[in-house]
């Protein structure tokens, strides 16, 4: 009897492994292998014209002294901060409205907020490029009409970061709002009723009930937007259409853009891999920091 059940358990375990194996195989080929291979390349000097040669830590030593890396890191964090903070606040506000208002066509509005997310980044960049053009852009036209001086969005450091952040906010706010909405719907109605009886305002209810109740979801979105935001690539790439440099003064060069420039424009595969590894470390450590900060939200 006992041996029989053990046997059954073993065969169950085996079939379980079999069922889950496609994931592990695909992950090994498309996830694990590239990661390991990137590490291997990072310790070599390699371009399309020669065989890879082992250079040890040379790429990393060179990289630490490369001011382009530090500039790219500064830009990446600046863009991340400018995009993530407003994005999360607006998403919370949108979710709150979608959850609590009695407007008609709930499903319709929920779908609408997701539309920016399914639009191609390239199309978004083209449209924003037209809106924010220096000479013939609509935004500068509006600024001129209102009596302000027009802004050279792409060529300024801060203004180009703002422009990229606006594209990111436009694209990801709706997505985050839907995730918050799902979380808000599982908050028990009784809590709000009790607060209502105690005379708490809507805003007070939002701060004291909603936020703490959906804390795990906020942690999740903060970490996902950290991972995504620190790898920002398409928006700055398409901003000026002049390649991977990120502007004439590298004013909006991001770490991923710098990696691409070295890998696929300068063909320094080893150096580019070293940048990728550094980026990975930055993202992991910064995700942990964010996790620790957001966890402090009062339960």
């Amino acid at each position: 009897m006992a041996t029989n059940s053990k046997k059954l358990l073993r065969s169950e375990r085996r079939s379980g492994l079999l069922y889950t194996s496609p994931f592990f195989i695909i992950f090994a080929v498309f996830g694990l292998f590239p990661i390991v291979y990137t590490f291997w390349v990072g310790f070599h000097k390699w371009d399309p014209f020669s065989e890879p040669t082992w250079v040890g830590l040379d790429n990393f030593v060179l990289l630490m002294g490369d001011d382009r890396l530090w500039l790219a890191i500064r830009n990446t964090f600046s863009i991340w901060f400018l995009s993530s903070v407003p994005q999360i606040l607006i998403a919370l506000w949108l979710a709150w409205i979608l959850n609590h208002s009695r407007i008609k066509g709930n499903t319709f509005w929920r779908s609408v907020v997701l539309i920016p997310n399914i639009t191609s980044v390239v199309a978004v960049a083209v449209v924003f490029g037209q809106l924010f053009g220096r000479d013939y852009g609509m935004i500068n036209w509006l600024l001129t009409v209102l009596g302000f001086t027009p802004i050279d969005w792409v060529n300024g450091t801060f203004s180009s970061h703002v422009l990229i952040a606006i594209m990111v906010i436009w694209r990801w706010t709706g997505y985050n709002a839907l995730i918050y909405l799902a979380a808000m719907q599982s908050v028990p109605e009784e809590l709000y009723e009790a607060a209502e009886l105690d005379g708490a305002s809507k805003f007070r209810q939002f701060i004291e009930i909603t936020i703490p109740q959906i804390r795990p979801t906020i942690i999740f979105t903060v970490i996902v937007s950290t991972i995504g935001g620190l790898q920002i690539f398409a928006e700055p790439l398409i901003l000026d259409g002049q390649g991977y440099a990120g502007g004439v003064s590298r004013q909006f060069s991001t770490v991923t853009l710098f990696m691409f420039e070295q890998g696929f424009s300068r063909f320094e595969y080893g150096y580019a891999s070293a940048i990728a590894i550094v980026l990975t470390l930055i993202v992991i450590s910064f995700s942990i920091v964010n996790f620790l900060i957001v966890r402090k939200i009062r339960a």
């Binding site: 390239v122 996902v224 790898q231 696929f264 990728a276 990975t280 992991i284 995700s287 966890r295």
Partner: peptide
């Protein structure tokens, strides 16, 4: 679970992310 998910995704996304984006430009 959620935070673990985030961290696990961190390591996976960063490196595998580079391969898929070559054509966006």
């Amino acid at each position: 679970l959620l935070s673990l998910l985030g961290l696990a995704a961190a390591s996976g996304l960063v490196l595998s992310g580079c391969a898929t984006q070559t054509t966006t430009d």
